[in-house]
Simulated assay, not measured.
Amino acid sequence: MTTINILWDFDGTLFDTYPIYANLFKRTLHTDVSEEDIFSKIKISFSEAFSYFDMTEEQIGEFKQLIRQYPASGFKPFDSVEKVLDSADKNVIMTHNNREDLVRILRHYDMEHYFTEMVTGDDGFPRKPDPASYIYLDDRHGIDLAVGDRTLDIIPAKKLGKKTCLFQNKEAGADFYVDRYDEFFDRVYV
């Protein structure tokens, strides 16, 4: 089996975080909007959801505090993702999430050791789909494949001529598509 260097998104790609975020978002809004409606907006981006639901700075701060207080054990890694991480030569993360929450969750599951480097929203890079963070990680680690759950996650990799994989998303543009990580070896490692 060929080993590869993989750039990963975090939320919705490595960990199933969006259902928890939707629930906490709903608690912050104090309205009867459905978690499904919230989910559809936060899946685009938090900025999109904050704007769409016309959230105040106070509500945004309350939401972020709820995330920080939520037990790391509540955020679950997707099944079989560790097998893929273990098979790669190198794994790196590029996420808009903050480093504190990212590391807190990875450490809880003893998964931090899988990652050679992590670039977060705290590191000052422009937001995806700007390729600056991907260029940085590629220069340092020679990325072969980018895996994400949104088209936004693969656009920078495509700009660099890298292979891409969308997880639980069938939008056009990726080289590979997987709904479960136990499919990864049949679909990507071919």
Rank of each mutant, 00 (worst) to 15 (best):
G148E: 04
L24T: 00
E171R: 10
I135S: 01
F78N: 01
K162H: 14
F10C: 07
V33T: 09
D182M: 09
F167W: 00
P71H: 08
D101A: 13
F46D: 13
I20G: 03
Y134A: 15
D130E: 15
Y52R: 02
G142L: 12
L145Q: 04
L24V: 02
D86Q: 15
D79Y: 11
R180C: 08
E112V: 09
D175L: 07
D11C: 04
F46A: 08
R140M: 12
C165S: 05
D138L: 00
L145E: 07
I42T: 00
D186H: 12
V178M: 01
D32G: 11
M94L: 15
I135F: 02
F50E: 12
D89H: 15
D149W: 03
G173Y: 06
D89F: 15
E112G: 08
V178C: 03
K43R: 14
D79L: 10
K162Q: 06
Y177Q: 05
D144Q: 04
P131S: 10
F15Y: 12
L137V: 03
K163S: 13
F115A: 13
N5L: 09
S51W: 11
P129Y: 05
E58T: 15
F10H: 03
A146Q: 06
M1A: 14
G173N: 10
G148A: 05
K26T: 06
N169M: 03
K64V: 12
N98C: 14
D86Y: 13
E35A: 04
K90C: 14
Q65H: 12
L29D: 07
F50P: 07
T31K: 05
D123T: 08
M55H: 10
S34E: 08
H113L: 02
K163N: 04
P77D: 14
R27A: 13
I67M: 10
G161W: 04
F15I: 00
D54C: 11
F39T: 14
I20L: 09
F167N: 00
S45N: 05
N91A: 06
L137E: 05
I44Y: 11
R27W: 05
I67D: 01
K64D: 07
E48V: 13
I105L: 05
